[in-house]
Design a protein around this nucleic acid. Structure first.
Lengths: 139, 139
DNA sequence: CTGAATGCAAAGCCTTTGCATACGG
DNA sequence: CCGTATGCAAAGGCTTTGCATTCAG
């Protein structure tokens, strides 16, 4: 894989962040260092990096795709209020379905996804305090 | 909630199916009974029904939203080849994160999602047999 | 009757893609 | 050098929305 200035900076930005940004957020961030970069380039690079297994594309959630440069296995926690995705620090074991079950006979499982949903510290606090908080709808 | 002919038929169609169709698939199916129905109506109704808790909106996967009229709790199995979503018949218990963990201190978990990915019987067979199969890309 | 739902079409997001140009190895 | 990546802008899916009309309760 070729490493243009754009690609490097996009990857670097993604590695720095822990909030699993969407393409447009990455665009805004990278634009500060490379004012002429285009959204198309962002998308093309995210695609390439994902294809190369260097980053991961998250299609949890409803709206845009989110991206993750973290490579160690981890579970995600998504805030239903502000939509931030955090990595959970504790170990959680995903159950393995009974492969002897007749239903599994002609099916093959290759992957699984687990995520938890709820309120992040900020939104938890806002919700408890008053009704001000973030304007995004809860749930 | 008001129950127009359209809404009834959309819900009925969704209850009949087990493949968790997307909006356009529902549109095509319902169109056979109500040739004049519009896609906008499909979307508006799916939204209403989901808001009323009568159906569930699945935003797993990458492309379109998928819809589910099944109310009993169940885990989904999604085929990476043909993108069908099936309900898994066996019981699977989703692990509960340690609420005493310091990281959980100021966060609140209200929901969780678990799904398994792999190949459905049809795609499993196609893959084993020859290279013909369904044209959709694997993975 | 009256607000809610509909069909139609236009508009909206997010994402992808075509093209000529610039760049990396 | 050559093929890949870029910027720009246009096009593409899927979904939402405005509007006048129709319908359900």
């Amino acid at each position: 894989m070729r490493f243009s200035k754009q690609r490097s900076i996009i990857l670097e930005e993604l590695k720095l962040r822990t909030d699993h940004p969407a393409a447009d957020q990455i665009y805004l961030a990278v634009k500060k260092k490379l004012p002429d970069i285009s959204l198309g380039t962002i998308y093309r690079n995210l695609e390439q990096l994902a294809a190369g297994g260097i980053i991961r594309e998250l299609h949890y959630g409803k709206g845009q795709k989110r991206f993750d440069a973290h490579q160690t296995p981890h579970i995600h926690f998504r805030c239903l209020n502000c939509d931030t995705i955090e990595d959970m620090p504790m170990e959680i074991t995903i159950p393995v379905p009974d492969t002897l079950h007749p239903w599994m006979q002609y099916r093959e499982i290759t992957d699984s996804r687990l995520e938890y949903l709820g309120l992040c510290p900020l939104c938890c606090k806002d919700k408890a305090g008053d009704t001000a908080g973030i304007s995004a709808p809860i749930k």
